[in-house]
Amino acid sequence: MKVTFKIWRQENAKTKGDFKSYEVYDLTKDMSFLEALDHLNELLVERDEKTIAFEYDCREGICGQCCLFINGRAHGPHSNMTTCQLHMRSFKDGETIVVEPWRATAFPVIKDLVIDRSSLDRIIEQGGYINAKTGTAPEANAILISKSIADKAMDAAACIGCGACVATCKNSSAALFTSAKINHLNSLPQGHQEASTRVLKMARQMELEGFGSCTFTGACEVECPEHISIINIAEMNVRRLKAKWFE
């Protein structure tokens, strides 16, 4: 199949970027989207042009490294999916595919389609962990946790930190990411000790990093590869109110 890639090219954070079009002819429908970009890069090497920088790691949909805004959607046209799980069969023959880096003030462009997501790491540094020394793996039933709470914590813990929520949000809010990290630990007994400082510090860092505020458009939960529910944000808000006024 033949497609035209319209790709954002930017040398570094300081220079101005622009779109550049590339026609690629010999693609197959069963190629993954990232393989198609690999193929384009091979062609660029042969032509002695600069290759396109884009991020990936596992290519299994679990690491959260790939991050492309494709044809107006974070991670491409399908909902709840990572970029690496997207295949060329999702596009029509002869289609023009627009690829942009994720846009947010807190995610500056490093090069081409690669962005700096360390702002999310700095939110984690403010309390996305427990302080207690855990030693070796404890006996599974030493701390009893009900199934419903374990499930809820696990659903929140599933966040891979890809940043699709920020990318798709019109306010570039990191509320879905931060709430998932807070609710994961705060629902479990191990996280109770630092529950209120965790929510206050992590939410504060989210604002310091320049992320916007949540207006509940619901776009984030549609794009989240891990199906993290927007309800987490409401739960973070009540935890925040409680921590601020009652503890």
């Binding site: 779109f19 627009v98 846009r103 003030t105 500056p108 306010n171 570039s172 320049g210 916007g212």
Partner: peptide, 11 residues
């Protein structure tokens, strides 16, 4: 919130 979105998407 507008400041948080440095640049808008072309699509």
């Amino acid at each position: 919130n507008r400041k948080a979105k440095s640049q808008h998407y072309s699509i």
